Simulated scan of single mutants.
Amino acid sequence: MTPQMIEELLQDPVFRLKFLELLDRDPAFREEVRRKLLTDELLALPERVERLRLEIHKEFERVWRAIQENNRQIAALTERMERVEAQIATLAQQVQENSRQIAALTERMERVETQIAALTEEVRDLRRTVGRMEERWGLAHENMAEDLMPRFLASAGRRVRRSAMVQFDGEADLVLEVEETDGRRVTWVVEVKGRVWGPRPFEQVLERIRDAAFRSWLLREGFPEPVIPAVFGLAIYAGAEAMAQKLGVGLYEARRGEVVAPRIPSAPGASPSLPETSG
Results as ranks from 00 to 15, higher is better:
R195Y: 10
V186L: 11
E55L: 10
M81W: 14
V95C: 00
G233A: 04
W137D: 08
A212V: 08
R72F: 02
L45T: 01
Q87N: 13
Q68A: 15
K18H: 06
L274E: 04
E21N: 13
T106E: 02
E258I: 10
D169V: 11
R128W: 05
R184L: 01
T106W: 07
W137R: 09
L42A: 14
M243V: 05
E180W: 07
E8T: 14
R200E: 13
M243R: 08
D26S: 15
R151V: 10
R185W: 01
R53N: 13
V259Q: 03
E134H: 09
K246L: 08
R151E: 14
E207Y: 03
R80H: 06
L43E: 07
A164D: 06
V63K: 11
V205Y: 05
G248I: 01
R48M: 14
L247R: 00
F214R: 02
P3V: 04
A270F: 07
I264F: 03
E179A: 05
H57M: 06
F223I: 05
R136E: 14
A164F: 09
W137H: 02
P46Q: 12
S99G: 03
V227G: 00
R255L: 09
Q87S: 07
R53A: 15
G269D: 09
Q204D: 08
L148A: 04
E82Q: 02
P3A: 04
R16D: 11
E135Q: 15
E97R: 00
T277M: 01
D12I: 03
I56P: 00
V14D: 13
F202T: 15
R25S: 11
A238L: 01
T106Y: 09
R161I: 06
F223Q: 03
L105E: 08
S266Y: 10
S163D: 07
G198V: 08
R210P: 00
V123R: 02
L17D: 15
P229T: 07
I264H: 03
M149Q: 09
I228E: 10
Q94W: 00
R62G: 04
G222M: 01
G194K: 05
V112F: 11
K36L: 12
R53L: 11
S216Y: 13
R162W: 07
E8G: 04
R263L: 09
Q96W: 12
A254M: 02
M149C: 03
I228Y: 08
A156H: 03
G138L: 03
V84D: 01
E31V: 05
V130Q: 10
E113D: 02
E135F: 01
T90C: 06
D26E: 13
L234T: 12
P27I: 12
V95F: 11
R151S: 12
I264T: 05
A240Q: 08
R210Y: 04
Q4A: 09
E191W: 05
P199M: 11
